[in-house]
Computed example of a mutant assay.
Amino acid sequence: MPNPENKMERIKLIFRYLMNLEWTEKIQHYCIFCDRANFGGIAYEDDDLIAIHNIRSAGQLHWLIMPKSHVARDIESLNGEHIALLQAMDRVKQHLLASHCPGVSPTDVHSGYHRGRRPLVAGIYYPDIVSIHHLHLHVIVKPRAWLRFFKYPGWLPLMWRSDVAVLRRVQRLAAKVT
Rank of each mutant, 00 (worst) to 15 (best):
D74P: 01
A174G: 01
D48Q: 14
A165N: 08
L120K: 02
D46C: 05
R117C: 00
R169L: 09
E45W: 10
L49V: 06
S99V: 12
R73E: 04
K176F: 09
R118S: 02
W23V: 10
P157V: 06
I14V: 15
V164E: 15
L135M: 01
A175P: 00
F39W: 09
M89C: 10
V141N: 02
T107S: 15
L137K: 00
Y17P: 07
P143D: 01
R73V: 04
Y30M: 09
W160E: 05
T107N: 13
A175E: 06
I140H: 01
R56C: 07
V177A: 15
R73I: 02
N3K: 13
C101L: 10
A43C: 10
W160T: 05
G59D: 03
S77C: 12
I65G: 02
P102W: 04
L173Y: 05
K68R: 04
A88K: 13
L61Y: 05
I132R: 00
F15D: 15
E81C: 11
L137R: 00
S69T: 15
S105V: 08
D74I: 00
K26T: 12
S131P: 04
H70R: 08
E9N: 15
R56K: 11
G41S: 09
Q94Y: 08
Q60P: 03
R148W: 11
R36M: 12
A58R: 02
V170F: 00
Y17I: 11
Y125M: 03
H70L: 01
H95N: 14
Y17T: 12
I27T: 14
V164S: 10
T107C: 12
A58T: 04
R73D: 03
L18D: 11
S162F: 05
Y30Q: 13
G116V: 01
E25I: 11
C34N: 08
L49W: 06
M66C: 04
